[in-house]
Amino acid sequence: MLVLLTAFAIPAPASARDTLGVFDGWGAFADPRPRRCYAIAEPDARRRSAAWRPFAAISAWPARGVRAQLNIRLRKAKRRGAPVLLMVGNMRFALVAGGADAWAPNAAIDARIVAAMRQSDSMRIETRARDGSRLVDTYRLRGAATAIDAATLACAPSG
């Protein structure tokens, strides 16, 4: 799993990435420049038809004052105007998206999503692809809280 996670993680030179740990299906990594730390996982049933490797990540960017920001890479580009819905436990969140990436609309929703992730066993993202097919990816959340905490601590301000 570690090789898979590092191979598709947020782009950076492989030699620059520090592995913080792998916790069940979630990995935690840090990049020095720009300084960023993130917890990341692939969906449960990765489909071979994916145009690229889908993932869900929770990131911290200290220089930007960003902490616990959700980013989801869909397995295909979404259809223009199609809603992107994230279900975490019994909570539903409408995400904003462009192309093949989706995010929470603001930091308050990011915080609600991360809180829901900490209390749930799985999350599911749904939308429509450009070709009209239904896109659904499910993520197990076992290990997510630990990976998020490792990434958050690694990018915490010192002093």
Results as ranks from 00 to 15, higher is better:
Met1Ser: 12
Met1Tyr: 05
Leu5Met: 04
Ala9Asp: 13
Pro11Gln: 04
Ala12Gly: 11
Ala14Ile: 14
Arg17Pro: 06
Thr19Asn: 12
Leu20Asn: 03
Leu20Glu: 04
Val22Ile: 14
Phe23Ala: 10
Gly25Phe: 03
Trp26Ser: 08
Gly27Asp: 08
Phe29Ala: 07
Phe29Met: 08
Ala30Thr: 13
Asp31Ala: 13
Pro32Cys: 10
Arg33Pro: 05
Pro34Arg: 03
Arg35Cys: 11
Ile40Gly: 04
Ile40Arg: 00
Ile40Ser: 05
Ala41Arg: 00
Pro43Glu: 10
Pro43Arg: 00
Pro43Gly: 11
Pro43Val: 09
Ala45Pro: 08
Ala45Glu: 15
Arg46Lys: 13
Arg48Phe: 13
Ser49Gly: 15
Ser49Asp: 15
Ala50Cys: 12
Ala50Pro: 06
Ala51Cys: 08
Ala51Phe: 10
Trp52Asp: 12
Pro54Ile: 05
Phe55Pro: 06
Ala56Ser: 09
Ala57His: 02
Ala57Asn: 02
Ser59His: 05
Trp61Met: 11
Gly65Lys: 00
Gly65Thr: 00
Val66Asn: 03
Ala68Asp: 14
Lys76Gly: 13
Ala77Ser: 13
Lys78Ser: 15
Arg80Trp: 12
Val84Glu: 03
Leu86Ile: 01
Gly89Ser: 06
Asn90His: 06
Met91Gln: 14
Leu95Glu: 01
Gly98Trp: 02
Ala100Met: 11
Ala102Asn: 01
Ala102Val: 02
Pro105His: 01
Pro105Gln: 01
Pro105Cys: 03
Ala107Asp: 12
Asp110Gly: 01
Asp110Leu: 00
Ile113Gln: 04
Ile113Met: 05
Ala116Lys: 01
Arg118Gly: 13
Arg118Val: 03
Gln119Ile: 01
Ser120Gly: 05
Met123Asp: 07
Arg124Ile: 15
Ile125Gly: 08
Arg128His: 10
Arg130Ala: 15
Arg130Ile: 15
Asp131Ala: 11
Asp131Lys: 02
Asp131Tyr: 07
Asp131Gln: 07
Gly132Cys: 06
Leu135Thr: 02
Val136Leu: 07
Asp137Glu: 15
Thr138Leu: 08
Tyr139Leu: 05
Tyr139Gln: 03
Leu141Trp: 02
Leu141Gly: 12
Arg142Lys: 10
Arg142Asp: 15
Ala147Gln: 02
Ile148Val: 14
Ile148Asn: 09
Asp149His: 07
Thr152Trp: 07
Thr152Val: 11
Pro157Leu: 10
Ser158Val: 09
Gly159Met: 01
Gly159Arg: 03
Gly159Ala: 09
Gly159Cys: 01
